[in-house]
Nucleic acid binder design. Structure first.
Lengths: 214, 214
DNA sequence: GACAGAAACATACTGACGGTATGAAACATA
DNA sequence: TATGTTTCATACCGTCAGTATGTTTCTGTC
């Protein structure tokens, strides 16, 4: 019987070819591993997720995993990076929609970050496990991260005179950390819907107060 | 030769008696375990700390550890609880010193929390490892925790009219999370001293703005 | 003070998991 | 087609959290 490796003569070129190139093979494996890892890390958490489980779900063995990743920590780092990129995309999108008003843009970016961080899976990866598993330095040195975006938005708002002049770093920490904690609190509130509404209302007041400050 | 169990006839009663009571034995062992665990958790981190290492440092075996604690997680929980109690004591002290002014008291409490959280060992336990190891619910249900103190302070400031009326929860999250993130950023700044000064200056402005808000 | 029972610990062991070593299969290049 | 490299599979090791069981130390009672 044929071993099912019949060539797909479709026009898309997206189905696996009869003889996939090494790059394609590699990419597919990495993709499978990342998807499996993300699913398990997001639900069971970093510590409770075994690499064997990841490999089984991805349909490969540890040989493949350790060929593409240096270890569990680096695998998680890759998952975390992707998550940050997805979050950053949402933030940027919300920010750019009202970029004409520098301070309002920061508000919309903050709202986007808060709402995106309500997903328990996102929380588990980015807020609970990442600090302990990666450390602060590794989280910062990722190229794309949401804290950096927050900083840039605030710095721009200051440059444009939308809020009183000040160093941008302290406010960045307060806002970014505050939003992260808010996200954790909101989803665990008795009424998450109401809690989110309250959080956004308060965030609005906070932004207004900051803009009005001397 | 005598087995060195000569009774200490000192007046203090603090030295180990010739026949220590079970309570004393227990307490001493628990104390040794907690001290050893806190030292290792604070430096190497939760995951990198083995219970064997804790036992060796404490001068006991795993039999003793598992007699007093249900497992690694619970041991860490006990260490974390102590840390929170210490922090809460510092916060309360700073708060009460200026309790007459409800909002200023919250500021002083916040400053105390921020400054206390600059210690890398405190950070490692309370900010990096605790969320992943304990989870949010377990961190909240501790009886004594700093977030609760923040909430009470803010709620009181609202009741007393020191800041505009609003629900206390959202602001609690923003402030507590912001301070935590600030502590992590400050100690990793190029010039921590200057970063702390900037953070406190900005915190002052934030408090003024919140008090002035409509 | 002898003794039964319980509390406080010690010792030996197991299973699971992260990581490594080594070899085979798939692909690339000539 | 032959050779080297990439990609992965398999077998194995060390470590560590947790358990099972035995031993010592204390407590209450006669």
């Amino acid at each position: 019987m044929a071993t099912a490796r019949t060539a797909a003569a479709d026009g898309t070129g997206r189905q696996p070819r009869a003889r996939p190139t090494q790059q394609e093979r590699s990419d597919a494996t990495v993709e499978d591993l990342l998807a499996a890892a993300r699913a398990l890390f997001a639900t069971a958490g970093y510590a409770a997720t075994s690499l064997d489980a990841v490999c089984e779900r991805a349909g490969v063995t540890k040989g493949a995993l350790y060929h593409h990743f240096a270890g569990k920590k680096q695998l998680f780092s890759a998952v975390y990076t992707r998550e940050q990129e997805r979050l950053a995309a949402r933030i940027s999108s919300a920010y750019l929609a009202v970029a004409a008003d520098p301070w309002e843009a920061v508000f919309e970016g903050s709202r986007a970050y808060l709402e995106a961080s309500l997903d328990p899976e996102v929380q588990r990866i980015t807020l609970f496990d990442a600090p302990g598993a990666l450390g602060w330095e590794a989280m910062r040195d990722l190229g794309v991260n949401c804290r950096e975006l927050t900083y840039k938005g605030i710095a721009r708002a200051i440059r444009k005179g939308a809020i009183p002049d000040r160093p941008a770093d302290p406010l960045t920490s307060m806002l970014y950390g505050g939003l992260s904690e808010s996200a954790m609190a909101v989803v665990r509130a008795a009424d998450p819907q109401a809690a989110l509404a309250e959080a956004l209302t308060d965030l609005r007041r906070l932004f207004d107060a900051l803009a009005a400050g001397s």
